[in-house]
Amino acid sequence: MNIASLPLSDQAPMTRPLELDHAALQRVHQQMQDGAVTPAMSPWAADIVRLLNGALATELVCVLRYKRHHFTATGLNAPAVAAEFMVHANEEAGHADRLAARIVQLGGEPDFSPEGLLDRSHAAYDAALDLKSMLRANLLAERVAVEAYRQMIALVADKDPTTRRLLEDILVDEEEHADELAGLLER
């Protein structure tokens, strides 16, 4: 017999019933000015905004690095690789926009300041001029981004499911970028 077909009373006992926290629902009414930040996540909002601003800086540095590499790539395979660099730059810019929007939803301010951008970023900027070095630098940056997003996802976990889903979506793209760059490097 399938457990889903059993009446709830016949299923394994639960430690607590699945019920909404009505007191938390009432507190939401009292703090409408907080927008997306609810009382359950508010203790974490500032930390989440700080994490997201670090990710935003990383995405901005990646956009700059990819664009430089796009415009300075030379050699026999350069046109195809440069085109891929621009695709990645545009996707990283989209990530930056999504992160900035979430920061604002959480009541924070996205930090687009060029001052200290590299210090806030998890990835480095690179001014390499040969194609293999460009590919290696971008692959390293993507691997750093993958690890950073995995750690942020673990930190946010159940504290902010919306931010977690956003980070998971971006992680999928970063893993794809790393796979593509590794494949180009093998050519």
Rank of each mutant, 00 (worst) to 15 (best):
A4I: 14
S5L: 15
P43R: 11
Q105S: 13
K67A: 14
T162L: 11
E19I: 14
M86Q: 12
A4C: 10
R150C: 10
V172A: 15
N90P: 03
L18N: 10
E176Y: 04
R187T: 13
Q26P: 00
R164L: 00
P43K: 12
E19D: 11
G183K: 03
S9T: 15
G35A: 05
I3E: 14
Y149D: 07
H70W: 06
T163C: 08
D119K: 07
L139Q: 06
T58S: 15
I3P: 11
G94Y: 12
V49T: 04
R187C: 15
P17H: 08
H122D: 14
K132P: 01
A124R: 02
H22N: 04
R50H: 06
P13H: 09
R120N: 01
D173R: 02
D158G: 14
S133R: 07
E180G: 00
T15K: 10
R68D: 08
L64F: 05
A148S: 06
T74L: 01
S5K: 15
P43D: 07
V146L: 07
G35M: 05
I48L: 03
L129Q: 06
D158P: 14
E186P: 07
A55K: 10
L51R: 13
A93M: 11
E142L: 00
G107Y: 10
A157Y: 07
L129V: 05
L20A: 12
